[in-house]
């Protein structure tokens, strides 16, 4: 059963990954591949939009843990937006809000990126 999907687009020059469905230990490799591809093309200002993500398990968070240093080391960041309460709760239980920018929406993430660049 296919229950996870990622779309890639750009918004004002920033890379956006839209997540759909359920991110677990089975589907996490798709997110990993998408992030690896962006990093290999030196695209490091990344926004991950969780608007359509219904569920996340720790394997999904593990992907962000594995790549954030790579992205930050080339001057970029991964900002996370539009999480529903259930998904945010998982990030919160593991203490991610102090380590990652978790924003309400894409516009806030873009504003933060622009502030950091100026």
């Amino acid at each position: 059963m296919k229950n996870f999907k990622i779309d890639h687009r750009t918004n004002n020059g920033f890379e956006v990954l839209d997540l759909f469905g359920e991110l677990d230990a089975h589907t996490a490799s798709e997110l990993e591949d998408a992030l690896k591809q962006l990093i290999s093309h030196k695209k490091s200002n990344i926004i991950v939009n969780f608007q359509q993500l219904e569920y996340i398990a720790s394997a999904g968070l593990g992907v962000f843990m594995a790549y954030i240093e790579d992205v930050r080391s080339i001057g970029g960041d991964i900002k996370l937006t539009n999480m529903n309460d259930k998904v945010f709760n998982v990030f919160d239980l593991l203490g991610f809000p102090t380590l990652y920018d978790i924003m309400d929406d894409e516009a806030s993430a873009i504003k933060k990126f622009l502030n950091e660049m100026s």
């Binding site: 398990a57 593990g62 240093e69 239980l93």
Partner: peptide, 17 residues
């Protein structure tokens, strides 16, 4: 988590959850 990020290590989160 901050230490694991530095070491690019995953895991151990499931039990905590």
């Amino acid at each position: 988590i901050p230490e694991q990020i530095k070491l690019k290590k995953r895991g151990g989160m499931g039990v905590h959850l």
